[in-house]
Design a protein around this nucleic acid. Structure first.
Lengths: 335, 335
DNA sequence: CCTCGATGTTGAAACGTTTTAACCGCCGAG
DNA sequence: CTCGGCGGTTAAAACGTTTCAACATCGAGG
């Protein structure tokens, strides 16, 4: 706004050259204390704010990384983001969060913008598995919570197949033989993997594949969980599952709400297992059994991979963590 | 990275001048279809990515606004952010989220960076009330969920004093005379206001001020709520409050957890009222009575205020919404 | 045949920094 | 005296765009 004061205004006002002002800003030690003071005073007086665009244009650097998150309202991702931010701060970088809200249009727009901004690097939990839309465009990209389909990027993930297997195996071991899988859309890789894990658990236990009823949802949010609950109760009693494995905790919480609302008891009428073990899972109406992922570590690792990306002899790495089942009341053994 | 292809490389490759390439990018209609195709092909072929820094340096525009949020892990703020983003998108702007994590150092760093980046505008829910650190620096700033202390900025807020009053009045009406207020740090304006509202409720009801026991917390997160729960139960029975008003839902959820963990019943042993009415409040172990705020509307309004900021005859406006009490099981009348 | 307007295209000047190489005193060593 | 070196300072050249005035080209109207 205002008249927009630049480095040369400051220089003029302090009676030095613009190079000196630049030095005060970037290498304070190289300029004589007296002049430095004078320049700082001028900066203060004129209310000078350094223009990052110009700086970046010249220097090529940007001091910023970005994390394009799948759903900013999902505590899982904000926990991952915390890990990212910690690592970024340690490296002297700022973090911008962008929310694709599971919309691949938005995702594309943000990616485009971030490339154009020449950020130091991009972390992304992508909406869609397929997309080779992360084609090399000069800015390093690291995939978070998703394995790189073709190995063209670093990635940090958690073994979702194993997670699904753990969850459903647990349900089987507690005596359930008709199980629902709640989650979607299936275009999301994590959902597909967890589903695959669930099927594997059935196989391991010698149960038929149709022991698993899939209730696909439009998104991974609480409201969809409630909807799934209604659909579930609407099923004929003979075919109704006695347990549900939800692709994430938001769905599970919604499902829980829907059950109590319809007068059904968890875990007696329906056992429920969630995924992510977000903080609210333990505080739920019925404390939620869930598959825990190392959220912050995921973020920190992703960030450090990103930082290693412009080392001279960089090779893409793919880190995979193991999930862990946390048993709580929502899947307590039937009495 | 790579050799970094610029607009002039594209121009050369397509056999036109750089001005023409720029035109293709910014005013496609003004250039002849044939050349346009040729240029687009060259862009594609060379993998050209427009350099936003240079563009912005020259044009002055930036197509981005930012929201510096107090705690990205608090669903209240992510809901506000959703509102902001909706409005921003409608105006063709992208939104960058920055998390100050209640740390005024971080907050300052982000503000500095955003000013230097010359973003179109900044929304902020500040950590600290005092700070005149938002001094005019050329970029419009709008305060979110906080009234501008000196009217030098637009602001969008909710009447927190009224909210506190509603909550505590409700507790008094349901028969409580010893009430705890859980929240902090008191440096946060919202906490102070809600506390003031609580006191007002006491006064209205003719109760002494010491009917309210203040349990100050270090932050507004779940873990602190659990801690407060332990402190609460540690009080001598004669002085122990029979109800608690928490400065936000995260604290309330933590408190709830702590109660059941210690074998106490909500609301029988302790009635609990939260604040914000986040989605998880209704799904809690005991569905939480809470003070609801128009979260997304808050965000949308803030964004539109920000956009109006560079209209010629702009005057700072201060919008204030009314909160609303939502009664659920956690404060059900004693039987 | 000349002029004019319309339609495309272009050269060059910004934009506000950082950076490099050069410059200027000045002092101490030779 | 001269010379080399050193602490400070600076002029000027980038960086990759956008924009503006000017310039071709061409067909139509006079």
């Amino acid at each position: 706004m205002k008249p927009s004061v630049g480095i040369r205004d400051v220089a003029h006002h302090a009676g030095v050259s613009n190079a000196t002002v630049s030095n005060v800003l970037n290498r304070p030690d190289v300029v004589a204390p007296a002049t430095r003071q004078r320049v700082l005073a001028a900066i203060e007086e004129l209310g000078f704010v350094r223009n990052e665009s110009a700086r970046q244009l010249r220097a090529g650097r940007s001091r910023v990384i970005a994390y394009v998150v799948l759903d900013a309202a999902n505590p899982f991702f904000t926990d991952v983001a915390r890990g990212v931010e910690d690592a970024a701060r340690d490296a002297g970088l700022a973090l911008f969060l962008c929310n694709s809200a599971s919309d691949d249009g938005r995702e594309r727009e943000y990616l485009e913008l971030l490339h154009e901004q020449r950020v130091e690097g991009i972390l992304i939990t992508p909406v869609d598995g397929e997309s080779a839309q992360f084609a090399e465009r000069g800015t390093p990209v690291v995939l978070v919570d998703r394995e790189s389909p073709d190995g063209t990027h670093c990635s940090v993930a958690v073994d979702d197949v194993l997670g699904g297997e753990l969850a459903v195996t647990h349900l089987i071991e507690t005596g359930h033989t008709r199980i629902a899988m709640v989650g979607g859309p299936l275009s999301i890789q994590q959902v597909r993997d967890r589903h695959e894990g669930a099927l594997r658990a059935l196989t391991n236990a010698g149960l038929p594949r149709d022991a698993l009823t899939v209730l696909e949802t439009k998104s991974l949010q609480v409201a969809e969980g409630r909807g799934a609950g209604e659909r579930l109760v609407g099923l004929p009693a003979s075919r109704r599952p006695t347990a549900a494995f939800c692709a994430n905790d938001l769905l599970a919480l919604g499902l829980l709400q829907s059950m109590t609302q319809q007068g059904l008891k968890v875990p007696d009428d329906l056992a429920v297992v969630g995924y992510d073990d977000i903080e609210f899972a333990a505080a739920a109406a019925v404390p939620l059994t869930s598959v825990r992922q190392p959220r912050e570590q995921l973020g920190r690792t992703a960030a450090s991979l990103l930082l290693s990306e412009n080392e001279p002899d960089h090779e893409h790495r793919h880190v995979k963590f193991q999930p862990e089942l946390v048993v709580r009341a929502s899947s307590a053994v039937k009495r």
